[in-house]
């Protein structure tokens, strides 16, 4: 339908839609309002995540209170805390075991960049080196309100996804990988230290690309 005509009609109180649009709306509405997070925490951010799920902040208002103890039942991975190099393969394996469609929120300075432990020999400098992170939440730790804001941001992201076309969710894209490669413990670092598909590496201002 012509968008101009649709706009004109909606001003007069007549709302029009197509089957495809209605299907897309229903599909995304259902997905965004029942995000089930995976029940795990890696460090102090997990305490804030727990606070967000309790009565005072009440993540249940956004349909995400069903923390699942098994990755087979979860849609959302909240990486809450410092990801050590010892823990990174386990996090990637858990992500791989989650059914599609699945989303990742990196919560806190450590999960998005390594945070205050970035220079440490045993800390991964951001889980987005291995996983396709959808929402980054800065803060050390972020307050529960920040987590809720991140969740709402993710819901808006899901709401805008299409069933056809380039903005499809990952599980409907034929070329998207089923599983992300799990790093192994190398002699000094993880092997490989990053997944070039999700972390291409941006050129640094001085031209060094490490």
């Amino acid at each position: 339908m012509d968008p101009g005509l649709q706009n004109e009609l909606s001003k007069r109180g007549i709302f029009t839609t197509t089957w495809q649009e209605l299907l897309r709306f229903g599909y995304n509405w259902g997905r965004k309002n029942s995000l089930w997070p995976l029940n795990f925490g890696l460090a102090c951010c997990a305490i804030e995540m727990i606070a967000a799920s309790m009565a005072r902040f009440d993540i249940a208002r956004f349909g995400a209170e069903v923390f699942r103890p098994s990755p087979r039942q979860a849609d959302l991975m909240i990486v809450a805390g410092t990801v050590t190099k010892k823990m990174a393969p386990l996090v990637v394996r858990l992500y791989n075991q989650m059914p599609e469609p699945k989303y990742v929120i990196a919560m806190g300075a450590c999960a998005i960049s390594g945070g205050p432990f970035k220079q440490g020999y045993n800390v991964l400098k951001g889980i987005d080196r291995f996983l396709p992170v959808d929402v980054h939440i800065p803060g050390c730790p972020p307050r529960p309100e920040a987590l809720l804001h991140g969740l709402i941001t993710l819901q808006k992201l899901i709401e805008a996804q299409e069933i056809h076309g380039p903005n499809k969710p990952r599980h409907l894209q034929e070329t998207a990988p089923n599983e992300y490669p799990i790093p192994r413990y190398g002699r000094f670092d993880l092997d490989p230290p990053k997944n070039p598909e999700v972390w291409p590496g941006r050129p640094l201002p001085r031209g060094e690309n490490k």
Binding site: R93, N96, Q97, P99, E100, P101, H171, L172, N178, E179, I182
Partner: peptide, 9 residues
């Protein structure tokens, strides 16, 4: 929601 199994999954 096409099934996408794998060895890790």
């Amino acid at each position: 929601s096409p099934a996408r199994p794998g060895p890790v999954k």
